[in-house]
Design a protein around this nucleic acid. Sequence first.
DNA 1: TTGTGCCCATGAACCGATTCACGGGCGCGA
DNA 2: TCGCGCCCGTGAATCGGTTCATGGGCACAA
Lengths: 355, 355
Amino acid sequence: MVTTSGRADASRRGTRRASISDVAQQAGVSLGTVSNVLNRPDRVSEATRDRVQRAIEQLSFVPNGSARTLRAGTLTTVGAVLLDIANPFFTEVARGIEDRLGQDDHTLMLASSDEDPVREHRYLRLFEEHGVLGVLVTPAEAEIDHLLALQRRGVQVVLLDRRSPSPAIASVAVDDVAGASMAVTHLLGLGHRRIGFINGPSTIEQCVDRRAGMLRALTTAGLDASAMVEVEVPFLNADGGEAGATELLALDDRPTALFCVNDLTALGAMRTLRAHGLRIPQDVAVVGYDDVNFASMLTTPLTSVRQPTHELGRTAADLLLRAANGLAEEPAHVEFQPELVVRASSVGADGGGTA
Amino acid sequence: MVTTSGRADASRRGTRRASISDVAQQAGVSLGTVSNVLNRPDRVSEATRDRVQRAIEQLSFVPNGSARTLRAGTLTTVGAVLLDIANPFFTEVARGIEDRLGQDDHTLMLASSDEDPVREHRYLRLFEEHGVLGVLVTPAEAEIDHLLALQRRGVQVVLLDRRSPSPAIASVAVDDVAGASMAVTHLLGLGHRRIGFINGPSTIEQCVDRRAGMLRALTTAGLDASAMVEVEVPFLNADGGEAGATELLALDDRPTALFCVNDLTALGAMRTLRAHGLRIPQDVAVVGYDDVNFASMLTTPLTSVRQPTHELGRTAADLLLRAANGLAEEPAHVEFQPELVVRASSVGADGGGTA
DNA sequence: TTGTGCCCATGAACCGATTCACGGGCGCGA
DNA sequence: TCGCGCCCGTGAATCGGTTCATGGGCACAA
């Protein structure tokens, strides 16, 4: 006898969610037995088990996770606070995390801080309140005292895409110095001796490291910093790349190659080069960083430095689980090596080959 | 006197998380008073309040969310299960959702089903167990009985980017027929009379709708289906676009324009056109769908159909909150109109203008 | 027949918050 | 001086699970 009331949520307010004792009553057994059916079915006789299962279905019973977590302190969920969920780099990382967590039936709560420390704090708090096993964080600031405190309070913390400034906190990062060095060495190997570097603000760790990598490559090749023509742009996106490239093209002694601090920057730079009637790579070679998903799909596919994003996420999740299970002696600090992906923007499909 | 034991997790096992009664004891007040300080500070005298606050800080107390949810049934979290978190379309939608939820101090638990119904079910179950207020879902299958059941059990459900097949479930979608119609009308307006359509599998709702939109545009212009040269490709990505374009270019009577079912497909098609020495848009015009973030950054910026992704997410979250608060008479069904963004791939910067 | 042990089911105690009926103390008006 | 109310603070009851000490029933061996 269902009354179709005006309120769409009649069902919501009306019937209470079935609880474990409703099931027990329906099946004619005790509380504990239902719980055993759910968690340790082998300890219950088949007949009883069936009866309980039927009751569960009849009442469409779904156990209350809060009650379970409260009593058992189950700790099965892991939180992740990423810098920017719209960045393909981070979504790939998230995939890796999920992969690893899924293996052990853990689940992931995702959040994006959008580089805002306030949002980061809010999400960390939420995760802590929900009793997560641990958190994976790409901190929005260099300061990580709040993460140390969090870890002291019993929440496992692993830094993502950041080298840990403290041995107390585990971290997973990629060697940016090596990546940039590879990229520039590649350009040097193609004969370039004057290389433009479109870099971002030096407050960003990645920018500093990639610059260092470039210098290392030059030194190794017996050159000095004068072979590098650096411009600094405020934003690491296509507009920044356009501005940087415009500036470099205005120079008397124009570089023959460009190394861009990330792929979006490279994209803007390429657009500018074309607008000036320059061919890529014949007139100016271009190398980016990140190997975002569309780098290979551009009209002139972009040479770029690929980071093991998936592996980064997997490993971070793995460290977290190991630590949580007491398997880790002490916080681990993993650093991955990136890989250069050579495409037509540096080595033209016809001509310019290495042969 | 801290013992630096070999176990990194000494702190974890050792000290228990402070509870509300620890705080009460430390401050020399009762349980209820601490709770009042947290939730209804005005009912507590200032002196007591300060004392409790100090105790909270000393013990670095963080309330246990499970206990709170269990007792109060707070219902403050919302879950979202998206089809593919690596797709820029969905990350934009997620941003919109977060925006709206943040206004009311709700928080979002994100998950990606990767188009796998099993994963979708798992996450929905997790959300339900955690007592979420409701869920926003882009179902992986046409079948949505499980969502109806979920809603009957008291969890608000809103379909995301899907028209609801049932009036009982709210939905937010975008009018794909209109979007495709606009795109094709644009091409017809430029004088094209033979238009290639690179479409995906007809099991996907979007593909069906966009095809219908194209036909509607042709009919409206007094043409018939013979003006459409359709090829169907299995994957909605750049490889699919390449295959589709190759097929179309092999025809005796080559189309002068291409309408692609999404931007990735368009990207592949453009790559193929260039490889054949054809100029865009002078020889062949191209229009995509989705207006992904890099559409404007391509060497030849891509004309595309923009969907109000952010608004889609915002609205879905809004419907959910309204329904949860009993403000909605009955489930709403919102459909947005898309917008055509004209760029150089259809109307060359020089020449081909509409003037 | 009695004793031993195993299998299975029981239900009270507990997790950590919120809520609410209750009461002590104090001020104010009569 | 007495009584009424108000302001604060108290602590037991409660949410819905998990856990575990307890015990009934039965089979089998002595």
